[in-house]
Amino acid sequence: MLEHLRPTAAALALFTLLTGVAYPAAITAVARLAFSARSAGSLVLRDGAVVGSALLGQPSSDPGRFWGRPSATTPLPDDATASTGSNLGPTNPALLDAVRARIAALRAADPGTARPIPVDLVTASASGLDPDISPAAALWQVPRVARARGLPEERVRALVEARVEPPLLGLFGAPRVNVLRLNLALDRLLP
């Protein structure tokens, strides 16, 4: 065992410098130079102030804005310092109660729409910070948003459809709409 003491100490020291200091530093340097906005968190600015990250979901309850995925972070939703899912099992009564409450809130904000609600609007995301909703979930909200904003439904629908990102090569991932970018575009429609 004693013969291994020196190589152990030397290897830990050397590889800590190489993989723990030099490697992250080199990647940071390349990322800051080549992809400065993305490596800093894809921050979104409006009038010079940071309003969020294009990659992180935000809380929403205003009928005149698109709502994102429900978030299970505690105590407040969409907490970017405590990412988490609900971890509720599929048979857990607490999950079913939460889904019922979300359905009730969506129905109350838009009693006129009878169509079934897309699943991503009533289930909590894995990270608690999902920035996207499905195109179906965005289109479901169009009548409510249009009414609250006093806009024709077609204009709001066109806004959604212009922001649909398809799966990669039509194959990998699911179709999606970024909620923060959609809401910012909506705000720009109404000065």
């Binding site: 999950l95 699943v119 289930t123 920035p131 499905s134």
Partner: peptide, 14 residues
């Protein structure tokens, strides 16, 4: 228009 499925604890883009 949607990936669908059991979306509790899943992300839309994935």
């Amino acid at each position: 228009l949607q990936g669908g499925g059991n979306m509790e604890g899943k992300e839309v883009r994935i």
